[in-house]
Design a protein around this nucleic acid. Structure first.
Length: 109
DNA sequence: GTGGTGACGACAC
DNA sequence: GGTGTCGCCACCA
């Protein structure tokens, strides 16, 4: 059963992101134990293109709150989804990002 | 087996 | 304060 550790942890974590909340690659990477591995987080989310992965990757943005992966969603799909959740997006960036930011360490006991 | 790349982050200058 | 460079680990050619 998916013992891929790093990748699998990313999937599980992203799925745990609450509605109307966002997180950053660095936060996930840091939670996994390697803050510098933020690139791997993006690569892991790359699997979100697979139907089996019900991952709200649109809730994951970079440290600046910018929708860095928007282009991979195929247009403004990412922004549409975020706005649909009540998240205000402007200039491809999440407004009040720090307020909407969800830290995985907060949820974990 | 090696090299290059990648949805980022932090540090140096 | 902005730009440039390195680092991180996994996948593809």
């Amino acid at each position: 059963m998916t013992e891929h550790n790093f990748f699998n942890n990313v999937y599980e974590l992203v799925k745990l992101i609450p509605f109307g909340r966002v997180t950053s690659y660095g936060a996930i990477a840091k939670y996994l134990g390697s803050k510098s591995s933020s690139r791997m987080v993006g690569w892991a989310l790359n699997a979100s293109h697979v139907p089996d992965f019900d991952i709200p990757a649109h809730r994951v943005v970079n440290r600046n709150g910018q929708l860095s992966g928007k282009a991979h969603f195929g247009g403004n799909r990412m922004q549409e989804l975020l706005e649909k959740e009540g998240i205000e997006v402007e200039n491809d960036k999440v407004k009040h990002f720090k307020e909407l930011f969800w830290d995985p360490e907060v949820l974990t006991p």
